[in-house]
Design a protein around this nucleic acid. Structure first.
Lengths: 231, 231
DNA sequence: ATGAGGAGGATCGTATACAATCCCGAAGTC
DNA sequence: GACTTCGGGATTGTATACGATCCTCCTCAT
């Protein structure tokens, strides 16, 4: 078995195509509405269109791209309404995951989370919304990723992937929210360190996320009542 | 355009294959572990293997089938652990959806839900686990389906689809839980009718589902402590 | 009897080929 | 000038073909 073989070893071409496209979307090189032409992608990846089609179908099932018969695939657009709904879903699931993860967090996890939050605090002066959003994401990820229920993690991660196009711009819309955010993060860390009951932790995360969402909505639709979406 | 065309009109073949397979899985004609042979399915549906492959890939992305390179696809197995995790995820999301749906429920919705629950109550004598589980599903579906957040609904429905193989057998394992279940349903209806706050409704649904899950777990692993999964 | 090895068949993975469909612009008509 | 009609090109949808891989079972040596 000395022959490493030219390429067929390892992953299938459809998998390569799948990850390649997904990464481009995540990195926002393919922005919403971007047209995914099978032939072009196939050429770029040096394969036929068949594996690319499969990859696109998988991405469609995940909601990252939308497909229209006889027309083709494009990177999914996320409008205001979808964004709101997805954020609400994330809030529900991530809060639960964080609550379940709390007692599995190590001292080092908490240290890292606090370090991230301190970087965020320090960056409030020269405020860079993209960087801040990324750190925010990292902070929360540390806190929920120890959740023993992989299914919840998958749901949260999948949902964030769908929102990748907008993810970085939340705090660009409502920079004022950043200040509150880091404070709430610190409170959350204290809560976890004190071994607060899961219900309290879940509540805290929910309020935190809901607060950010409310700030965003207030910016998008000024004057409208918050509505009964509060849970 | 008077020509109805032989078949090419309407949906694509991959869509046909997708729905065909999905329906079989839902109806449990394809049980977990069932081998999905592309060529065979393609023959049965009178098409080539290419659309079938795409369909399978989509189903894989939804978690309904598992795929192994160069080996093929089979209907996903759900072991105990996965079942527990999925049920917990459902509990979290469905409870939130039910709470959000509560104030949108019409008098007719409540009437229908109560009717279903009364059929369930009446069926407690000649207990048929499958029928009972189906009614249980219907009852809860009525209560959460008015949720204004379609994303939450999609998550719940997708999760239930994944559990289709086991769904019908829950109450077969723990028939004793059926009695409690219908009582809790009635309490839940009262809560909604009284316009209870969303938090209370969410809590009630959570406890209800958690109770059923706990009963199941107690049956599967007698004597083990419930664990900190309570939320 | 038992385990290593290999031949054969079944099935998957991908390329290529071609028909079906759609999109867009140009020509024609009122 | 605005609306309809009709190509032509681009792109998708599916079929067919064939090499690659895996699984089964059979053979054979120990």
């Amino acid at each position: 078995m000395a022959s490493p073989a030219v390429t067929p070893t390892g992953v299938s071409k459809s998998q390569r195509a799948y990850h390649w496209i997904k990464e481009r979307i995540a990195k926002q090189e393919f922005t919403p509405g971007y047209r995914l032409v099978l032939g072009t992608i196939a050429n770029g990846l040096d394969m036929s269109v068949v594996p690319v089609r499969e990859a696109v179908r998988q991405l469609e099932a995940e909601g990252l791209v939308t497909f229209e018969r006889n027309v083709g695939a494009r990177v999914s657009m996320v409008d205001d309404t979808q964004y709101r709904h997805a954020m609400q879903a994330i809030t529900v699931v991530e809060s639960a995951a964080t609550a379940l993860a709390a007692r599995h967090l190590t001292a080092d996890d908490l240290r890292r989370a606090r370090a991230v939050n301190e970087v965020m605090t320090g960056s409030l002066d020269r405020f860079d919304p993209r960087a801040f959003s990324a750190l925010n994401q990292e902070f929360h990820h540390i806190l929920y990723s120890r959740c023993a229920n992989p299914r919840l993690l998958e749901i949260v991660d999948a949902e964030w992937a769908r929102l990748a196009p907008m993810r970085d711009s939340i705090f660009a819309f409502v920079p004022a929210r950043a200040q509150e955010s880091v404070q709430e993060h610190e409170q959350l860390l204290r809560l976890i360190e004190d071994g607060a009951p899961p219900e309290d932790i879940e509540q805290a995360v929910r309020r935190h996320r809901t607060g950010t969402l409310a700030a965003y909505l207030e910016h998008e639709h000024p004057g409208e009542p918050a509505g009964p979406s509060s849970l």
